[in-house]
Amino acid sequence: MITDTATLMDTEVLMAGFGGQGTLLAGKVLAQASMEEGREVSWLPSYGPEMRGGTANVIVCIASKPIGSPLIEHPRGLIAMNLPSLEKFAPKVKPGGVIVVNQSLIDKDPRRDDCVVISVPSRELAQQAGSARAANFVMLGAYVGATGAVSVEAVEHAIAAEFAGDKARFIASSVAAFRAGVEAVCPRS
């Protein structure tokens, strides 16, 4: 895994799913972790009436210099939590990009031979980690494991910071879910 931030590439990832699947939160954790590693970040959510029972997307940009446009039409990464998101955004990913597919809800191939496609049974792994609701962190783990966009430790730290205080009971299962996602793509030797 790459942890030397100086060698990290600029990247951007779109996380998309139903409202309530925790895409915005997972995106925030990624942005927070990258910021703490000294990188420039932006976190741009979709907002609008469609959020009511609809979809929730966020684009996180990570770069080594100040970010120009936080809006990226063709991101280098996609984390698709549900089928509509995969269908809508998979065609937009840059060739050579990484697409993480939530296998628990999607049984369709994005048909992007020019990208790295990773399918993750997020719900099952999250359940094993202690909370089915932490599927978002499994997906984030798979993305981080596959790309090394940020260090595993920084994300774990950011999860702990996010849930500090009266939500502390979520930390253990969220971190475990995140690790399960990392290990799903780069198993411990």
């Binding site: 942005a31 420039e40 970040v41 976190w43 741009l44 959510p45 907002y47 936080p70 809006l71």
Partner: peptide, 10 residues
């Protein structure tokens, strides 16, 4: 505009 209002940055 709404983008600056809604986005997070350091």
């Amino acid at each position: 505009d709404g983008m600056i209002g809604q986005m997070m940055e350091p």
